[in-house]
Design a protein around this nucleic acid. Structure first.
Lengths: 111, 111
DNA sequence: GTCTACATATAGAGAGCCTACATGTAGACT
DNA sequence: AGTCTACATGTAGGCTCTCTATATGTAGAC
């Protein structure tokens, strides 16, 4: 389960994972996989550029840390990012509702 | 509500709309809009090429008709398209479930 | 000495959705 | 007669993002 279907939803996923705690890229990938019950395996070549893009547009900021001899870049949500997350969430609900109602229409209830 | 978010889900939408009756492009666009409660306004430049693509890979076939002096190309689901639709539906449910569980986590239930 | 896990990054390809434009009929209104 | 809107299909080109593949390096286990 892993096509281009993610397109347009990565931002929401990344912002959401960072909502309650700052994380570095590698940990974000693990968090996505864990939170989605193993469904979302997002490759590093997707996540790292996306994080930089989100930083560039002001939704994240980052700082370097060294833990156990390894360099990490830790990302945290900005205020703008927090607002964007709220927007992304409601957009997702609208979107998923719309797709759902086309794809999985409920039988008309007994009259 | 109309970004690139549709990417990867157009096939499912089109196949689904054609499940119970053949329709021509223009009518498909209207059906999508109606079924989604006005949320999905898919431009013609998206739908017509997508329909041709689906026909090329064997999920649809089409024939021309003239109704009230206007030419229509009516698309109908093939057997392969019907199978693909089933796959798209379950893929959507997996996908939406995964995104949902990342984006809208339920608070842990009282222990 | 090698392998795996941890950790980040970039280049290039590919897919497909969107904007804009082109074309044409039918019917209503002025 | 002329214009406007709804109906109806189609293509070209741009753009953005995701993915694959590759590169680099540390730490710890075996």
């Amino acid at each position: 389960m892993n096509t281009d279907a993610l397109r347009g939803h990565m931002d929401a996923l990344l912002l959401s994972v960072l909502e309650h705690e700052p994380l570095h890229g590698y940990a974000i990938i693990e968090a996505l996989q864990e939170r989605s019950g193993g469904v979302l395996s997002v490759p590093t070549g997707t996540v790292y550029p996306a994080l930089r893009r989100l930083e560039r547009i002001g939704y994240l900021d980052s700082e370097w840390a060294t833990v156990g001899g390894r360099r990490r870049r830790t990302y945290r949500l900005t205020e703008a990012g927090r607002k964007a997350l709220a927007g992304e969430r409601s957009a997702w609900q609208t979107f998923a509702g719309a797709i759902g109602s086309v794809l999985l229409p409920r039988r008309s209830p007994s009259p």
